[in-house]
Amino acid sequence: MNDETDTTARKISSIVIIVIIVALALSLSALYQAYDLFINEDPTMGLWLLIGFIGLALSTYMLLQTRSRMKRFTLKTPPITTTIICSKCGFKNVRNFERGDYILKKLDSCSKCKGTLMISAIYRKVDEKGKELKIFS
């Protein structure tokens, strides 16, 4: 662990951003030129169209790349719920997990019936809608 901790992604040079934006502007103007030549039925229209599309594709790709590099990484923490249940009256309480909770832990007495409260469950919910492939299930 000798190397320094760097949790933010590297910053992109402003010159690179300017170059990308200029390239984007030139590609758009090439496309406009192609349109203009098309109106005048000029056969060189194809060349401008090609240049415009290649330039547009390259500059968009570069822009997306720089954006993804700038994005800060995060570690997702799923919400964990603790379910507390009264063994006598069946009173149930669901709250967020707190440090020190564990399954089958006995807590204070129930506020309703003075029975024993116990942590019956600790789990996380996973939303997998759209993730599953139903074809082979």
Binding site: P78, I80, A121, I122, Y123, R124, K125, V126
Partner: peptide, 9 residues
């Protein structure tokens, strides 16, 4: 190795 999910519980 992650917190127990509901289905497993």
């Amino acid at each position: 190795v992650s917190p127990m999910r509901k289905e497993i519980f």
